[in-house]
Design a protein around this nucleic acid. Sequence first.
DNA 1: TGTCCGTGTGTACAAGTGTTCACTAATGTG
DNA 2: CACATTAGTGAACACTTGTACACACGGACA
Lengths: 208, 208
Amino acid sequence: MAEKQRRKPGETREKLMSAALTLVGKGRHFASLGIREVTRQAGVVPTSFYRHFRNMDDLGLQLVDELGLVLRRMMREARANVLQADKLIEESVAIFISHAQANRSFFLFMAQGLAGESRAVQEGIRSEMRFFASELANDLRRLRLVDHLTDQDLDMTCDLVVRSVAFSLTDLLGVSADDDYQIDQIRKRTTRFLQLIFVGAAHWQSAG
Amino acid sequence: MAEKQRRKPGETREKLMSAALTLVGKGRHFASLGIREVTRQAGVVPTSFYRHFRNMDDLGLQLVDELGLVLRRMMREARANVLQADKLIEESVAIFISHAQANRSFFLFMAQGLAGESRAVQEGIRSEMRFFASELANDLRRLRLVDHLTDQDLDMTCDLVVRSVAFSLTDLLGVSADDDYQIDQIRKRTTRFLQLIFVGAAHWQSAG
DNA sequence: TGTCCGTGTGTACAAGTGTTCACTAATGTG
DNA sequence: CACATTAGTGAACACTTGTACACACGGACA
């Protein structure tokens, strides 16, 4: 019989979550993962799963929570590194892309979850995106870059920005993780998208 | 023994495809569907599946083909009904929303497939979107609404438009099919997104 | 020191899975 | 009409699946 391994608390839980992410990173869709498959990947007996999660949806929800942390780290880095306003878009997108590469599976999971099977996960990710958009709106206000926009129009703009960036995840998803050329193309395109949106915002008049 | 039912050619094939769509419409994710499940929903014996498809990915690919037809019908209707340029965006979005409601499962499948498990389905849907974007670019050129944009910038604009509209599918996905108020909100928001993008395009200068 | 309790393990089971096979009825083709 | 082809059927296969149960170990705390 295999020895019972005593691990530090929460280790198996983490193993299971990162096992699910690993499978997602290998191209599987989260909705198609099973409990046994995940435990197998984690090197843990199936019954252990229930010590930490009620079912796969539950695991998905906890992954969304961790995704929130990843996104917040990314925001912090962007705030720290994006100093000159004229390169704001370019640098923000670059930071996004580099985080997306460093946490590929996480962002794949995010892209999948937007149209996923679990309503709760879906709502969780949408909620993260709303939060992200509202933080972006705050930052832009603070930098006094959008003084001519009403709050509502600013919110709309940021919403569109976040969506466009999120959509680029599905581009990233299609290219292999080390195809630097393609990834750079995606970065450039996403940058142009945002520039176009901000040109629109600069000339937007609320009544329109 | 149940009678062997002779049906008109291709009927079982259609039954299987629409069975898969039905399940998607009920909130399931395509990637999590199994052959037996689909055949059960179609009221057909599991073995029949192999008469028409090699596996679920194959079925997915054929669904993408049909999705192409749906999209082309939609384009045709938009071209026929959108006459006055000043309401172009508003009416196009309205037509999109109404088609998305009329073919809910199809568009859910599309939203799922963008980050789906099958690389081939993914690429198929992206290809449909590219086609859609290039047709849109042609139309805009023909209407002489974007004379100041280079081809490349016009392509980018249309790409962004198509993405924004596609993303709104994930909004639609979250509200029940008969929640007219919410659907109208989505329609309005999507319309504003496109207006913002076109304001951006109007003031875009290629060198930027 | 003794006793919970959280977390790991192995076994078990019924139900569901993809796929193969041999069989058969209807259809199209000569 | 004879006949090959297509498209339906049921039975069977080896496996996988989710989940329940009883048990074992180690740390926290009395």
